[in-house]
Amino acid sequence: MPSSPSEPRSDVDLSVPSAARAYDYFLGGAHNFAVDREFADQVLRIAPSVPAVTRLNRSFLRRVVEFCLDQGIRQFLDLGSGIPTVGNVHEIAAQTDPACRVVYVDYEPVAYAHAKQLLAGHPFATIIQADIRAPEKVLEHPDTRRLIDFSQPVALLMVGVLLFISDEDRPAELIAAYRERLAPGSFLAISHIASEQAAPELQAEVGRLVDAYAAADEYVHVRTHAEILRWFEGADLVEPGLVRLPDWRPDNLVEQKSVAAPLGYGGVARIP
């Protein structure tokens, strides 16, 4: 989706920064406001290496979609899809098959509004405004039912969204609720911020990032490799398993050498 300058909606509180719009800013998108840019610049000052994870995460998403397409997948459910920016799932998928079906899910008003506008008239892609913590509302939404045939394999994308889900919200049970609806041969993709492999100075940056988001009333949950790996139990991890983001089926040596490379994990599993 091409970026274009955002106009604020009347129901958007421009006194509070948004994690989704800050993410868009880090990616070079245009769907963000002054309050978001001010917050993002603050993050850059206190944790200059961390925003590079957003770009590694976006690249991971592209490779995952390309892999799923190679496996014959033609349906995608993208949870927590965020602000529309270059390199969205339906754009990548359309390069292989323009008839691929894509449902984006996000609750953030600006993300929803812009995606709704940019996808207007698209026969095979849409966005629904919903909280991913309510799986039935997502899975039973009329637009989801219209585009996704759950009797056929689906790629379930949870890329960079679970870091905003607290332990109290039981992420493992949440993932299981979505997986139960997936046909055999479907794929589950997860990426998540982490810092256990990072040097002490990078770990300190992540700590400052968490504090900055908390101060903005956005809560980021950093987890370990072991915690994330448990979310794939009962599914078959595809090679190379749960690894650093740029190490998952890499195609860019520069990314693998990024200072931010130790700050996230990604993996994909096949539903047996």
Rank of each mutant, 00 (worst) to 15 (best):
L202M: 07
V210L: 08
D36Y: 09
A30Y: 03
S191Q: 11
S151L: 04
A235S: 14
A215Q: 05
T224K: 00
G82W: 01
A176C: 04
D143R: 14
T126F: 02
G267K: 05
A216M: 05
D97V: 04
P109R: 12
D24N: 12
F76V: 08
A52Q: 02
D106C: 12
L229K: 06
L61F: 14
Y219L: 10
R9S: 15
I190M: 11
A214I: 01
S18W: 02
S258E: 03
A113M: 05
R37A: 09
L182W: 10
V110W: 04
I83M: 15
E180C: 03
G264Y: 05
T54C: 07
F26D: 09
I128T: 15
D143M: 02
S3M: 06
H225C: 05
D24P: 08
H122D: 15
E255L: 12
I271K: 07
L156K: 09
A94G: 14
V50K: 06
A19S: 14
R74T: 05
L61E: 09
P171G: 04
D78F: 01
P123E: 13
H225N: 05
A214Y: 04
V238T: 04
D131S: 13
R58M: 07
E255G: 10
M158H: 06
S10H: 09
I228H: 10
I127A: 15
C100H: 09
A19L: 09
V16C: 11
E91D: 10
E91T: 14
R146K: 07
R249Y: 14
E180T: 11
P17S: 02
R244P: 00
A155V: 00
F60R: 02
A115R: 08
A216T: 02
F26E: 12
Q152G: 10
C100S: 15
Y178H: 03
D131K: 13
V161D: 01
S186I: 02
V243P: 00
Q197K: 14
A216S: 14
R145W: 00
P184I: 07
P2W: 01
I92K: 13
Y265M: 01
D143P: 00
L56I: 04
R270Y: 03
R101F: 00
I83Q: 14
D11Q: 12
A226K: 08
A47M: 06
E7T: 12
G87A: 04
E173H: 15
L139I: 13
D211E: 13
E140A: 15
R223F: 05
E196C: 11
C100E: 15
G241S: 07
R21H: 08
R244F: 01
P262D: 14
G266N: 05
E7D: 08
L157P: 04
A99P: 04
L27D: 10
F33Y: 11
F67Y: 15
T96H: 15
T85I: 10
G87P: 09
L202S: 14
E7C: 12
I175A: 12
R170H: 13
R230M: 03
E196Y: 09
A189D: 03
A155D: 00
Y23F: 11
L44H: 08
V86Y: 01
R208M: 03
D131Q: 10
G241P: 00
F187L: 13
V222I: 15
S258Q: 14
A19F: 05
G121F: 07
A214C: 01
A176R: 12
E140V: 09
